[in-house]
């Protein structure tokens, strides 16, 4: 187990290094002067040509990609994201504020997605192939095909514009978070329902279940001790996939609902070519993604001891 975790950690470290290289390559190749970008990332917005030339020498932009990469990576490893190229303010406080809006939204989306999909999947598998089952599969297929941002617009149209029940734009009160969270949750529920449903069905089909039942273990205990852990494995795996969906969905949904957060932060940064902001969001999402997936890999091995200890 410890050896397996070591291998996973090594892999995560390699992947993180890879994401850093990719991010830097993207900024290196983006139209514009990278020296200026780095200069602005590090100091204030107002810079003379002398300073930029000095940075070009210091960072090694006249030398080569790898030299420059090492110079760029240094501050990043100390979690120093530099200064905004537009406002000149340090990146970290603004990034942190954006995160305090996005992560609760993502969690609320995940929670409402689970609250919808778990009962639906359990009800659907009471009678596989029955009307309820087929309806739930149809809803899940439809849900997977609806773009999150369009669903958000439809909900605004119905619940905010037509009925006037909920506020749509901004993030002033907790009520403002309901529509965005539900939009995100419906998207999550579509894929979760499918996966939980097939997880339960597969767990039920396990050959050892009749043997356990024949020994006289009652139905509830079988469901709790044998079916649930089996169905849990794909669900845990899926959280890694849902994370990507949640982050992507949050980007679009924040833009639609005019909410502050990582999505609006990123889109504004791209539009104003604020490279320090762009790189901060990219590095942060990749970091979150790798760390969560690492945690999932470890949990996965804890739930199911059959999973190999060697490098998968």
């Amino acid at each position: 187990m410890i050896k397996a975790i070591g291998a996973l950690l090594l892999r995560a470290a390699v992947v993180l290094l890879g994401t850093a290289i990719l991010t830097f390559a993207l900024l290196w190749n983006a139209p514009g002067d990278p020296a200026q970008t780095i200069a602005m990332a590090r100091f204030d917005a107002l810079l003379t040509d002398d300073v930029i030339d000095q940075i070009r020498d210091e960072v090694g932009l006249n030398t080569n990609f790898w030299h420059a990469f090492r110079a760029w990576l240094g501050p990043l490893l100390r979690f120093d994201f530099g200064y905004s190229a537009v406002t000149g303010r340090p990146v970290w406080p603004d990034l942190w504020t954006a995160m305090t809006y996005t992560f609760p939204l993502a969690l609320a989306g995940l929670a409402s997605g689970l609250a919808l999909s778990l009962p639906l999947a359990i009800l659907a598998t009471k009678r596989p192939g029955g009307l309820l089952d087929r309806t739930s599969v149809a809803i899940a297929s439809l849900g997977a095909a609806i773009p999150a941002y369009w669903l958000g617009l439809l909900l605004i149209l119905l619940l905010a514009v037509q009925l006037g029940w909920l506020p749509a734009m901004g993030a002033r009160t907790p009520a403002h978070a309901i529509l965005p969270a539900v939009t995100l949750g419906l998207g999550v529920a579509a894929s979760l329902t499918r996966i939980i449903r097939s997880g339960i069905l597969e767990a039920r089909g396990q050959p050892f279940l009749p043997a356990i039942r024949r020994r006289g273990v009652d139905g509830r205990a079988v469901a709790r001790d044998h079916i649930a852990p089996h169905a849990a494995i794909p669900v845990v795996t899926v959280f890694g996939l849902e994370l990507a969906f949640l982050l992507e969905g949050a980007v679009l949904i924040e833009v639609i609902f005019g909410r502050p957060g990582l999505g609006t932060f990123l889109v504004q940064a791209i539009l104003s070519r604020d490279f320090p902001h762009v790189q901060a969001v990219v590095v942060l999402t990749a970091l979150v993604f790798v760390v969560v997936n690492l945690a999932i890999d470890i949990i996965y091995r804890a739930i199911d001891p059959r999973i190999g200890t060697e490098d998968a």
Binding site: V14, T19, L27, E248, V251, V278, V282, A286
Partner: peptide, 24 residues
């Protein structure tokens, strides 16, 4: 495969927005 993992570490749409946005 580590390169594949690296590309997978960026949420697809976020990466696409950044690439398309920076390229113009």
């Amino acid at each position: 495969m580590r390169a594949t993992d690296t590309f997978l570490a960026f949420p697809e749409l976020v990466a696409a927005v950044v690439i398309a946005g920076l390229m113009g």
